[in-house]
Simulated scan of single mutants.
Amino acid sequence: MTPSIAILLFLAGFLGGAINAVAGGGTFLTFGAMTLAGVPPISANATSSVVQLPGYITSTLAYWSDIRRMGRGALVLCAASILGSFGGALLLLSLDNPRFQSLVPWLLAAATALFAAGPWLKPKPRHAAEAMQSKGVAPGLLQFPTAVYGGFFGAGMGIMMLATLGLTQGGDYHRLNALKNLLATVIALVAIFVFVSGGVVAWAEVLAMAPGVALGGYAGVWIARRVPQTAVRLVVIAVGLALAVYYF
């Protein structure tokens, strides 16, 4: 790996971690940077899950005071995330690189479209007290397919979770974002276990990118509280569209 590629991966990791902490979509950058650096598509996708983990963890820790108040409902969502991510990661490993590469532009285009539609998919926040009430099995049923997608590919997973969590959870944006970061951590941990067991992780790229993701993930919470969401969303949409066109 050349120094210029290492710097590219570090910067992509920092920006990806920050974007994931704000609204999701950082996988557009990390996956794109690794494939441009010559990593095969399946390995790039699996490695992207590994390098996103530090950002998910630091973002979750930054919201820890909010997460501690969520109670039993968060555990149900974590269980659905474990099952879904395991299935999605196994599905990825069942494909070969040419078959997965043929899916990549369509996945990127779909994820970008979903991300762009995010503000219209999320309902108005409900009263915080309502967020503490039991919602039965509905939250887990909605979280499961999102976790399958997260284990399989992951780009746009954050906005998918914000949209589905908004249907079953109360509270403001920051409460939903805190829960999204927690569940993204769970999904990534399960997928990483499968990918490491399958031997498809590019560890040199992990070492170059992971420190940037960790720093970006923590900085992203600061950004989320100060930078207009519209500006961040436009950047993510532009990157997603550019990558989709490139891979097509």
Rank of each mutant, 00 (worst) to 15 (best):
F86M: 06
R99G: 08
L95M: 15
G150D: 10
L167I: 06
A178S: 11
R225F: 01
N20E: 01
Y63V: 06
T35N: 11
S134L: 11
F153E: 09
S4Q: 09
L189Q: 01
A80L: 03
V148T: 11
N20L: 00
L215G: 12
P123C: 05
G170A: 04
L11P: 07
S65L: 05
L179S: 08
A46G: 11
Y218K: 11
M209C: 14
A138N: 04
N177I: 11
D172L: 09
S43G: 03
C78N: 00
S49N: 13
G220C: 03
V239Y: 14
M1K: 13
Q169H: 13
I42T: 07
G212L: 09
L15D: 10
L15Y: 07
A110G: 15
F115N: 02
M161E: 14
A188D: 12
G154K: 05
P211S: 09
F144N: 06
V227Y: 02
I82Q: 04
Y56F: 12
A178F: 06
L83R: 05
G166A: 10
P145Y: 09
G73L: 05
F115A: 04
T164L: 07
K124S: 14
P139W: 03
A117R: 02
A46L: 12
I237T: 05
A238Q: 08
P54M: 01
S49Q: 08
Y56P: 00
A23K: 00
E130F: 14
S59G: 15
G25P: 08
A37I: 08
L75D: 00
S85R: 07
F195K: 00
A21P: 09
A131D: 15
G118Q: 14
I192C: 10
N177E: 08
F152N: 02
R99L: 11
R68Y: 09
G88P: 07
Q229P: 02
T146F: 02
L162P: 01
Y56W: 03
S43F: 03
I159N: 02
L182Q: 10
M157S: 10
L90V: 07
A202M: 06
Y63N: 00
V200E: 12
A44K: 10
L183Q: 13
Y63C: 02
Q169F: 13
G170H: 02
T168I: 13
A184E: 04
G198E: 04
A80I: 00
V235N: 01
Q133K: 15
A80R: 00
V201F: 13
W64H: 13
G166F: 10
T47R: 10
